[in-house]
């Protein structure tokens, strides 16, 4: 096909125009996303930065906003997320290994697959109701740290399973074949080849799932986590509170001082989140370096 010079110029100008429009739309979308995030951060910082102090971190909640602190909820959140990870990570990765490496591609495994994808989209409050019925009532765990962690584990399981499967799927079949051709059993191939290669992806996906869980208030409120706790949990079955619940509680108070407290607690929660994400990046980076040798 041969174009006349004028036609060609016209066509190229049109293309450049479209190119520009799409670039503009993409940048605008980015600015809207980042802008709203920045507004949130700045707003929380202006309101809450004044409340951040050692006293704020090391005090229990109180009726007087200037004396109140987040010790019990911060400790509760850390315990809760550690316990959740302890339960959800092995179960989730194990389920992913089964589905990806062992399960034959039959109708029932496809059914399980679709259901897991759907579970990832179920609202967290539904998990709260499940946790209330199953852990709090049926298993008699009461409103304990353990009941909360198990509920959170259910919430993040689908995400961990899906991201782990995706990570394992990126391991090339040639590596599996090479391992099997050397007389490795299926499990040896998974343990020595598939998991090490998939680990960065599995870790990233899991830590992001845990960061989601850390900000959840709804399921914890549903299972009846307390909002006013003036002691630290002393065991798995102790009652507990968490940062999102504390924030929720303070925001709903009429006094201005509590709103500042809520903003301060939001900042602390954000710092915890950032630390977790930094950990994910660090782990992934270190692992990739080890693979490169």
């Amino acid at each position: 096909m041969k174009l006349a010079a004028a036609d060609l110029r016209h066509m190229l100008r049109l293309r450049r125009g479209t190119e520009f429009v799409f670039k503009f739309v993409a940048v605008a979308a980015l600015l809207i996303a980042l802008g709203s995030l920045a507004t949130l951060l700045i707003d929380a910082f202006l309101d809450g930065a004044g409340r951040l102090s050692w006293q704020f971190l090391t005090s229990f909640p109180s009726r007087r906003p200037e004396e109140a602190g987040i010790l019990s909820s911060l400790v509760g959140t850390v315990y809760l997320i550690l316990l959740t990870a302890l339960v959800a990570f092995p179960v989730g990765v194990g389920a992913a290994i089964y589905l990806e490496e062992y399960a034959a591609s039959r109708w029932y495994s496809r059914l399980i697959e679709v259901n897991i994808a759907n579970l990832a989209g179920v609202p967290s409050i539904i998990y709260g109701l499940l946790g209330l019925e199953l852990f709090v009532r049926a298993l008699g765990l009461e409103r304990s740290l353990l009941a909360g962690a198990l509920t959170m584990a259910l919430l993040v399981l689908p995400i961990i399973i899906i991201s782990s499967r995706e990570a394992m799927r990126t391991v090339p079949p040639s590596i599996r074949e090479a391992s099997c051709a050397l007389g490795a059993s299926r499990w040896q191939t998974i343990w020595h080849q598939v998991l090490p290669l998939a680990l960065p992806g599995i870790l990233t996906g899991s830590i992001l799932a845990f960061s989601r869980a850390i900000g959840e208030a709804a399921p914890l409120i549903t299972i009846g986590a307390l909002t006013y706790i003036a002691f630290l949990p002393d065991g798995l079955l102790a009652p507990f509170t968490a940062l999102p619940i504390q924030i929720f509680n303070w925001v709903s108070r009429p006094q201005k001082g509590f709103h500042a407290n809520a903003a301060g607690a939001i900042l602390v929660l954000l710092v915890v989140l950032l630390l977790m994400n930094a950990l994910a990046v660090f782990l992934r980076h270190r692992h990739q370096q080890r693979l490169r040798l």
Binding site: I175, A178, S179, C180, L182, R292
Partner: peptide
């Protein structure tokens, strides 16, 4: 597979 080894088309060393 221990007694009958195999070399593949594309070199596939482990990382």
């Amino acid at each position: 597979r221990l007694r009958i080894g195999m070399v593949f088309q594309k070199p596939n060393p482990f990382p």
